[in-house]
């Protein structure tokens, strides 16, 4: 959320590397290849992420019109996660374990059998649930090389950096006082000062004037 609706909380990134002149021709195929794919209850993955349309995060059939807004590349990072409530899992696991023990005439299950049973129960419960969905907008101005990503979570930053690099073959450099100083244009003299910068101290030192 953020680029079109909702609260505006974001982090800036800068695209490092050479951006192709015709970004849509160069990247649409890879954007589609990295589009979000639904989680499947029977697969092991607990969470999955990929690109979706900024105007509708349920829409993952991405085409030129949905992604390229003049000089902007607009996408949403959609993250789906299975969230099975722990008490529900515990209750179902207990019932399944009792049934299995009775069926096999055993007193207790081994570690491996317990793990297999947990996976079976988890898959069964997932079929009855809908994954939790989170979507975070990304807007890349290809003229200024600035990317606005509408989340400040370091964990989600890592996901988007990895997916962006995989999709566009370009690196996302996060904004920080240091990267902003570099853009400001450090020369030989100021670079040396920057590298050896000490924090300004305003605290009163005892015995000083």
């Amino acid at each position: 959320m953020g680029a079109i609706r909702g609260p505006v909380t974001y982090s800036r990134f800068f695209v490092a590397g050479e951006v192709p002149d015709d970004i849509s021709a160069a990247s649409l195929k890879k954007i589609r290849a990295n589009a979000f794919r639904d989680l499947v209850p029977d697969e092991d993955e607990n969470s999955r992420h990929g690109w979706a349309s900024m105007t509708d995060s349920m829409d993952v059939d991405l085409d030129h019109e949905k992604v390229f807004f003049n000089e902007y590349v607009n996408l949403t990072l959609r993250i789906d996660t299975w969230v099975v409530p722990k008490p529900l899992l515990t209750a179902h696991l207990r019932t399944a374990e009792a049934t299995l023990l009775e069926k096999k005439g055993l007193e207790r299950l081994g570690k491996k059998a317990k793990a297999e049973l947990k996976l079976t129960v988890l898959r069964k419960l997932r079929r009855q649930l809908v994954p939790s969905t989170k979507s975070v907008d990304l807007s890349w101005n290809t003229r200024t090389h600035v990317v606005r990503f509408f989340s400040q979570s370091p964990r989600i930053h890592l996901l988007v950096q990895e997916l962006f690099e995989k999709t566009f073959n370009l690196r996302l450099v996060p904004e920080s006082p240091g990267t902003a100083a570099e853009r400001w244009g450090l020369d030989e003299r100021t670079e040396k000062i920057w590298d050896n910068l000490e924090p300004t101290v305003l605290a009163e030192v005892e015995g000083a004037e």
Binding site: V173, P174, S176, P177, G178, T179, A181, E182, W194, D195, L197, P199, T200
Partner: peptide, 12 residues
């Protein structure tokens, strides 16, 4: 480069 002198943002 990203991590160096983060305190400069506070001084800003």
């Amino acid at each position: 480069r990203i991590e160096r002198n983060r305190f400069a943002g506070r001084e800003f």
